[in-house]
Design a binder for these strands. Structure first.
Length: 312
DNA sequence: CCGATTTGACCGGG
DNA sequence: CCCGGTCAAATCGG
């Protein structure tokens, strides 16, 4: 995992860099914001601001995920768990939190009918296999909808999160043995948005896809990238992260360019190496690429390019 | 009636 | 033991 030498100076410098990046990103956020409010302001300026913002975000994600694993390794860290709340999160999210309206399927009511079934019986449930690492994509979106039908099978309160996490599996699990799962959790700093994690791919045939906006990669779970603008009515930029299973251990170095390269190729490999009973041109394969390609061609494609280059 | 949701118990890794 | 993920009985609701 951690191949870096001299952890101290590196992590000190890294912290400094992170601090600067956070600051820069915030300024970019504000700039973008200003440009948005000058309605009709030059498009290229907006794009430029968005592009700068994106660069900061991506850089931060790469750097912090790296430092996270580093600190985890040394064991001295302490509150690594809280990660980067501090500066960026609070500023950006504050206003949004105030406006929180209750959307969403879960939460809702609870304290109505209390049922008392104390089952003394040892409800032996057959032992089940815990899901190993599967391909995982995490997106942040204002809606939990997508074009698949899901069946909720659980909900849990998560430590340090004020919102519960809901667990879904594909409705076609038993019909067609589809292995896709999904977890949904409201984002605490911005309750209008959901963090949605897709685990595994659909092998059922169903019509998928609704386009997410932006794809980025990460080898950890840090989610601070979620920066949205409180009052702008514009759609927020959902962010997708991919995690590659690669047998648990991250392959040696975690430098930006390699990260992109390896993940891209792994993604492609993964997509192409579908179960053999599925023909490459089938809808299932098509769909997964559809997410990526159709999307780039819409409004964010320039940012996409920027993304790819910025971290290499 | 039957599929979806709710919700506490169970499971297993760290 | 704790915590997150899953199971499945009870319940909901079309």
């Amino acid at each position: 995992m951690n191949t870096m030498l001299f952890p101290e100076s590196v992590s000190a410098k890294r912290k400094q860099v992170i601090r600067e990046l956070v600051k820069g990103r915030e300024h970019a956020t504000q700039l973008k914001f200003l440009l948005q409010n000058l309605n009709g302001g030059s498009l290229s300026a907006k794009e430029m601001a968005a592009s700068v913002l994106r660069s900061f975000s991506v850089s931060l994600s790469v750097i912090t995920s790296d430092s996270l694993s580093e600190e985890a390794g040394s064991g001295g860290g302490g509150e690594v768990a809280d990660q980067n709340h501090s500066e960026d999160g609070s500023l950006v999210m504050a206003a949004a939190a105030a406006a929180s309206s209750n959307i969403g399927p879960e939460d809702s009511s609870e304290s109505c009918g209390k049922r008392i079934f104390v089952q003394a019986t040892k409800d032996r449930r057959g032992s089940y296999k815990r899901r190993k690492s599967e391909q995982t994509r995490t997106i942040v979106s204002p809606t939990t909808d997508d074009d698949h039908s899901w069946r909720k099978y659980g909900q849990k309160d998560i430590l340090n999160s004020q919102f519960p996490r809901s667990y879904f599996r594909c409705t076609r699990k038993h019909d067609q043995g589809c292995r896709a799962n999904k977890q949904v959790q409201r984002i605490q700093e911005n309750p209008d948005m959901y963090q949605i994690t897709y685990i595994g791919f659909h092998t059922c045939k169903d019509t998928p896809i609704k386009a997410p906006e932006m794809v980025t990669f990460s080898n950890t779970w840090d989610s601070f990238l979620v920066n949205s603008h409180p009052d702008s009515n514009e759609h927020h930029d959902p962010i997708i992260k991919l995690e590659c299973p690669c047998s648990g251990e991250t392959p040696s170095d975690v430098t930006g360019n390699n990260l992109d390269h390896s993940l891209w190729s792994e993604l492609k490999d993964f997509e192409l190496s579908k179960p053999s009973n599925i023909i490459p041109s089938s809808s299932a394969v098509h769909m997964d690429f559809g997410v990526l390609s159709s999307h780039f061609s819409t409004d964010f494609h320039f940012e996409e390019n920027n993304l790819l280059y910025s971290s290499s």
